[in-house]
């Protein structure tokens, strides 16, 4: 289908972009890579009055080293993120999860910031950024990952606020990592996904961090499993036992891809697998 009519602006400064959003008075929409927005426009599920294309803003581009963290620009495409040396060195979990997003053509256009701001609970990147304690840097402020994802398809961004990028700490450099995603067909969204980071010492798990995709209206941490595996053996048996707690505190949806009960089961199985792969056992 053909989208409903809208105006289009491509500002070259952040100030102009924020002004354009403000003038649109909540009827404006930020356009980054458009890989989530364009289908919504074509199906007329969204009909903004004006699109503000942020591809011309230098502040949103690339990945940079900033001492004890790296900053991934909101306009960095999935294709760029996957191949970026800084991401591979300090956030290989992000590179791994990003390589599972959609398909190559979508990854060429789709952006890191766009998929986070879209806040789809079935998206792969929100759980990764939550697991890594990312700090969202916007045109107005900084927002911790735990406060950024507000609800289903809803972020904490105000209507006149633009996501510039996310600061990822180097704390997890060298940790074991894995993103375990279950979907039924190529390029489909995750029915459930598990982002996992582990630090091992002498055959034991010193620390684990686990984030779940599509187990509620926002990404959630599996704190009960993190606690259960800490200071325990790095073994498949220990992981399977601990992963029974993965659904604790979650509120997974029931839809045509699976019931809530099925998702709770998947969370247990996939969490055990993610831990085993991340720990290398």
């Amino acid at each position: 289908m053909i989208p409903a009519p809208f105006d289009y602006v491509r500002p070259s400064t952040l100030n102009d972009a924020v002004t354009a959003l403000r003038e649109a008075d909540e009827e404006g929409k930020v356009l980054a890579g458009g890989q989530s927005l364009m289908p919504l426009l074509r199906l007329r599920l969204a009909y903004p009055e004006v699109l503000i294309d942020v591809s011309g803003l230098p502040e949103l581009r690339g990945v940079r080293d900033d001492g004890d963290s790296i900053v991934v620009g909101a306009m960095a495409t999935h294709y760029e993120v996957m191949r970026d040396p800084l991401v591979q060195a300090h956030a290989p979990l992000l590179a791994a999860a990003t390589s599972t997003v959609a398909d190559p053509a979508v990854r060429h256009r789709g952006t890191f910031g766009g998929s986070l701001a879209h806040a789809d609970p079935a998206g792969d990147l929100p759980a990764v950024v939550l697991t890594m304690d990312g700090l969202f840097v916007t045109s107005a402020r900084e927002i911790p990952a735990r406060d950024f994802f507000a609800d289903y398809l809803t972020s904490a961004l105000e209507p006149d606020e633009i996501l510039l990028g996310v600061r990822l700490p180097k704390t997890y450099t060298g940790w074991g990592f894995h993103y375990e995603k279950f979907h039924r067909t190529a390029q489909a969204w995750a029915v459930v996904g598990v982002a996992c980071l582990v630090r091992r010492t002498d055959g034991e798990i010193a620390h684990a961090r686990i984030g779940l995709t599509n187990m509620g209206s926002t990404p959630v941490r599996a704190y009960a499993v993190e606690t259960a595996v800490a200071d325990g053996p790095a073994s498949r048996e220990a992981f399977q036992s601990a992963a029974r707690d993965a659904p604790d505190g979650t509120n997974p949806p029931s839809d045509l891809h699976g019931s809530a009960e099925y998702r709770r089961h998947l969370a247990q199985v996939l969490t055990a697998r993610a831990l085993a792969t991340a720990a290398g056992v």
């Binding site: 491509r10 356009l31 458009g34 890989q35 289908p39 074509r42 294309d53 190559p104 053509a105 060429h108």
Partner: peptide
């Protein structure tokens, strides 16, 4: 040089 789905790109882009 990179593949894109032309139904998901605006002509202005």
């Amino acid at each position: 040089g990179l593949s894109v789905k032309s139904c998901s790109v605006l002509a202005v882009q």
